[in-house]
Amino acid sequence: MKINFYSRPNCLLCEEGLLTLKLVQEDMDFDIEVINIEENEQLHEKYMLMIPVVEKDDQIIQYGNLDYVTLYEALHR
């Protein structure tokens, strides 16, 4: 399973969100692809007010303040 994690540099909420996602990763097997929205104008426009954004199979799982329980339950399905 591959999870997209949309973020940008120097974003404290993104750093915290990635740590939360990595905690979930310790309990289940998936790969994380970190995507810098500043490298793609369309992604920047789409996600700039939402980051960090966790996406699985083109579906947003959670964005903004990420929490372990929500991520785990959504990814465990």
Rank of each mutant, 00 (worst) to 15 (best):
M1F: 09
K2H: 05
Y6R: 05
S7G: 15
R8T: 12
P9F: 11
P9M: 11
N10C: 08
N10Q: 13
N10Y: 15
C11F: 12
C11Y: 08
C11R: 02
L13E: 03
C14V: 10
E15R: 10
L18T: 08
L19S: 08
L21V: 02
L23Q: 15
V24W: 07
V24E: 07
E26H: 12
D29M: 00
D29Q: 04
F30V: 06
F30C: 02
D31I: 07
D31V: 04
I32N: 07
I32Y: 07
E33A: 01
V34K: 09
V34Q: 05
I35E: 01
N36C: 02
N36R: 00
I37F: 07
I37W: 01
E41T: 13
Q42P: 00
Q42L: 14
Q42K: 15
Q42S: 14
L43P: 01
K46E: 13
Y47G: 10
L49A: 08
M50L: 15
I51Q: 14
P52S: 11
V53E: 06
V53H: 11
V53Y: 07
V53I: 11
V54S: 09
E55R: 08
E55G: 03
D57T: 03
D57L: 03
Q59I: 11
Q59R: 11
I60N: 07
I61R: 05
Q62D: 00
Q62Y: 01
Q62I: 09
Y63N: 12
Y63M: 11
G64Y: 10
G64H: 07
V69Q: 15
V69L: 14
T70M: 06
L71N: 12
Y72V: 00
E73M: 04
A74H: 05
A74N: 12
L75G: 02
H76M: 04
R77V: 14
R77A: 14
